[in-house]
Simulated scan of single mutants.
Amino acid sequence: MGGAADAAVPAGTVILKSRVLVTDAEGAALLFFTRADAPANPTRWLTPGGHLEPGETHAEAAVRELFEETGLVVSEAELGDPVWAHDFVGEPAEGIRRSYHEEWYRLRTERFEPVDTNWTDDERVDVEQWRWFAPSELAATTDAVEPAGLAALVARLA
């Protein structure tokens, strides 16, 4: 769910999401270069993650989204407690603004190659590429990164 579905959510409703900061032994973060919901917004680098399904906890959504977007199978216990929470207002469709709350988890793992076997049709259109960013590369990139403070978060958690 995203874009049009988020735009259809009544104003004043907080949309819940979970994200996973996946890092390797050197602190490099796995990010996806993904088209934004509103065409006027830039394609940007972001972590695996997405919306909570009805009845899901943040941890359950993080485990599910990580599997769907990377093929990586982990347990809620492996993710542990959230390392950060992020509240923001986004634009799921041009001219429509909605409130979001994200719970962020961190997973340290060996570097791996994500698989797209479980991607949705939208992800197959929206995800342009993925890569591992060393903290210094993330801090130096001129590409759009979401959220804006992601480089500082990666450095703090490295």
Rank of each mutant, 00 (worst) to 15 (best):
R97P: 00
R35S: 15
T43N: 04
H51M: 10
E91N: 04
E113M: 12
W104P: 00
A38G: 02
R111W: 01
G90Q: 10
F88W: 15
S99F: 01
L107A: 09
T70M: 12
A25E: 15
A5R: 07
P42N: 09
Y105L: 11
V74A: 14
A62D: 04
L66S: 07
A77R: 15
T70S: 14
N118V: 01
P48K: 13
W84A: 14
R35H: 12
V22A: 08
T43E: 07
P82D: 07
F33R: 15
A5I: 06
A40G: 00
F32E: 04
N118M: 12
H101W: 01
E56M: 08
V115Y: 02
A36T: 05
E53P: 00
W104N: 05
F32C: 07
A11G: 00
V20F: 06
E128I: 13
G49S: 10
G50L: 10
I15Y: 00
W45L: 13
P42F: 07
Y105P: 05
P42W: 06
L52T: 02
F33P: 00
A61M: 08
A28L: 08
A93H: 04
V83F: 03
A59H: 01
D6C: 02
A11W: 01
R19W: 05
A5T: 02
R98H: 00
A62C: 07
R64A: 03
F67E: 13
L30A: 10
T23I: 15
N118P: 01
E68P: 00
H58L: 08
S18E: 02
G80R: 13
G50C: 07
R124N: 04
E128N: 08
T23P: 04
A59C: 05
N118T: 02
T109M: 10
L107M: 11
L21N: 03
L30V: 09
T47G: 00
V9D: 04
N41F: 01
T43Q: 06
W130M: 12
R97H: 11
E103L: 15
D24I: 14
V83D: 03
T117Y: 02
D121C: 00
H58P: 00
H58I: 02
P39H: 09
E128Y: 00
F67G: 09
E76V: 13
L107E: 08
R35C: 12
E78F: 09
A5K: 06
A38H: 01
R97C: 04
F112C: 11
I96M: 05
L16F: 01
D87N: 00
F112I: 11
Y100C: 05
A38Q: 02
V22Y: 03
E53Y: 02
S18A: 15
N118G: 01
P48I: 14
D116K: 13
R108P: 04
F33W: 10
V63S: 03
